[in-house]
Design a protein around this nucleic acid. Sequence first.
DNA 1: TACTGCGGGCCTG
DNA 2: CAGGCCCGCAGTA
Length: 489
Amino acid sequence: RQMRADAAQQADSARSYGMQLNWDINDPQMPQEPVFFDHFREWPNGYVRFIYSSEEKKAQRHLSGWAMRNTNNHNGHILKKSCLGVVVCAQACTLPDGSRLQLRPAICDKARLKQQKKACPNCHSALELIPCRGHSGYPVTNFWRLDGNAIFFQAKGTHDHPRPESKSETEARRSAIKRQMATFYQPQKKRIREPEAEEDQDSSVHFNIPPLDHPEQFDIITDTSFPVLERPCPSFPVSDAYKATCDLATFQGDKMLPFQKYPNPRIYLPRPPCSYELSGPGCINSSPYPTLYKDSPGIPNDTDWLHLNPLQYNVSSYSSYERNFDFTSKQHDWKPALGIPGLGERTDHGQLQTMANFPYYNPELPLNRYLTTAPPGAPALQTVITTTTTKVSYQAYQPPALKYSDNIGPKALSPPATVTRAASPLGPLPLKTPGDCQAIEPTLAFPQESASSRADGSETWEVCVSGLGPAISYSDRVGLIFSCDSEDF
DNA sequence: TACTGCGGGCCTG
DNA sequence: CAGGCCCGCAGTA
């Protein structure tokens, strides 16, 4: 499957019209009258260039799955945006399905600070913002330039962090929640009386599956849809238990997992099924109203926290050992990096460089973050960004962590039923990251491909969880990563 | 309330 | 001077 995905990516990249032409966002003259346009890429990664039609709505809005914030480049003709990274649980707790919390950093500084003061909806520990340092230690930057009938897009840098929840997913989730809130009571009563009758309706409501009214949507679907296929639970039948949970959770605010949240209906149509992952066998939340919110008044209203509701299980018990495989989800984003090189990209920025840098970036992030032990509510962004310039040798720090591969064992063995469930069905595979299918794939592949992958420069990170002693270590295999992001390249 | 784009301004290399 | 970043403002949803 990976092979296929990889091939698909390459093919996709090859089809990138923008990469076939020689241009730079700063060129005085852009290619005139482009004849072809690229389909919109929600998760561009690497040093890529695309040319979208000026009619492309998403391009017009300069949208991106990554949390990009406007950056002033003092050039009114070129819009520059820099990546904010991703917000994760400081304890790197594992969600019931084995995935990690990967929230979308709020774009607004103020909102982001507020966001970071909140606790992990899953384990209540602090949240942490992993800054993006994919561009020579600085955040990946995206440039947009409208020229004639084309919108030129250029990305610089390879994200060295997991994908955050996409904007579309966030919006879909929020809107779904609102809807649920509005209809919760009524539906509940009916459901009790006629559960079956409500099924379809519920599904549509929860997943907010809209009709594909726009062809272009397929592009995205393709991108993110992979995850569905890769996921352990796609095929898992929606159980009544789930629905019930879902409803309840929804009522609370949101029940989607951070990763599985359901995507924008339009965009991720295929994914909805994944939302069930958590609620699957393992997620049978015995208690829809988890203790998560007990001491968090007001949280229910915050859609950002709703993700975990479905999870409603008590994570605390096994959170400790789970730390071992923390960041596994990160891998999902790596693939893009790999795919980048060789895509016909101009060598100006050096794709090879990207590859070479990988080891450096990945490891570094975690280290700085944890070593600095930034306080939960600390201005992570600023702090981190400031630190980004400081090159830390992660190699030097060797916490008592296990290699990722080693961790797999423990994980599969000890985890609570929920966790086990997630991992067991498909065997070693299981850890999927919601954002994208590729996410977990790597994990699986890891053990198997460790030999080869390592050889190709994969790195092993050793991260020390702040204040926890335990370290998180995982080796990120650049090579593995490709399962799902065809869109990126 | 948050997202988004704009642009002034500061700092650093 | 370029690049990165902060900040406030304004329009929008």
